[in-house]
Design a protein around this nucleic acid. Sequence first.
DNA 1: GTCTATAGGCTGATAGAC
DNA 2: GTCTATCAGCCTATAGAC
Lengths: 219, 219
Amino acid sequence: MKGSASRKSSVTTRDALLAAGTRLFAQRGFDGASLETIARLARANKAMISYYFGGKEGLYRAILAETLEPVLRRTEGLRKVSRPAPERLQTFIFYFAEMVEHHPDLPAMILREALSGGRHLDERALGYFLSLFAVVREILEEGVRRKSLRKVDPFLTHLSVIGGLVFFFVTHPLRERLAREGRLPMKLPAPDAYVRHFALLMIHALKPEAHAPGSRTRR
Amino acid sequence: MKGSASRKSSVTTRDALLAAGTRLFAQRGFDGASLETIARLARANKAMISYYFGGKEGLYRAILAETLEPVLRRTEGLRKVSRPAPERLQTFIFYFAEMVEHHPDLPAMILREALSGGRHLDERALGYFLSLFAVVREILEEGVRRKSLRKVDPFLTHLSVIGGLVFFFVTHPLRERLAREGRLPMKLPAPDAYVRHFALLMIHALKPEAHAPGSRTRR
DNA sequence: GTCTATAGGCTGATAGAC
DNA sequence: GTCTATCAGCCTATAGAC
């Protein structure tokens, strides 16, 4: 159903194209990345893109579908863990960071897709996202329900969590460059440090209310 | 030094091109937005872009410089206000939302610029950003110093604040579209509601530690 | 599977009439 | 200041040799 991968080198070229495409689509956008450049980065011939993916758009969609699927499918695992919500939220944040480590260009590519209004988002790709979002939302919902988290809107909160993570990683290359050129007037924050900071920030943000002076909740 | 605006209609055409460019660069990226499309949206002739800005890149840079400047300059005002840090942070967040209301496409355009590694960021534009960042950082630093905020890293925190805001606004058009098509499995969050939520979330995240059970601070 | 050559479309830029 | 006409360059796609 997918070309029944026969040769060995064919798999390699295909994968190289997927990887190169991800990087260049992330860095320069769909229109800014030329097939010429992608092929060169993949050390392949540009005709190979038509061969494997039927064209530029085919490559783009293949990245969205094939790279995204295994990544997001893994998040599903976080659904089953039965642990307090704050801990599960932290796990999600660390998991997100680990994902970026393995696919450094994915967040930028996906964000660009979002900025473009999701022109290339078919139902399949959209489904992956919704399920990613659902995981976070469920953690938050459960936490609110069981009062291990403050009473917040799970959907709005989930946007804040994703936003704080995505924005950092997606702008990190720019900060790196500016730092390298001495144009960043502070030291470059390490991804690690940010992730730990952010997890803590969210834990604090969602910690159940300490009862206000004067009022008192039962228990 | 800038053409010493003589005619009346000339100003109008110029401004229309700036506005149209902002929208299209935001929605489709630098390479995705054609001069043809921009001119059409501005109800102008595409030759006018060369006339006023000397080309596509000139238009792009003009937007970055001219639209950004007044917007970011206003944030400078937030520097002088002498009020408790939590209140000033909230003011910043509301100010940011108000800015987006007046320039709905600016965040996306700027974010795209960041994703591209800041290829078009000259020293002037970069300076505007750094001063925007500085405002938030200063609020946080002061709050930490005076203990009206929890002891957090001001720089990391400022990234979380900006991230949570930018991500929401930049992805909002996508959610709107999905909602319109009935593909969003929850109700569309209103910008207002998000901003209020986010301000509160940050206030909670940064609230000075409640004394741990056993320990005790004064009062 | 890989590569070269080339067709055909679109884009950015600009000369020159008004 | 505005517009039409035009052109060179780059880009995607693909036919066909190996």
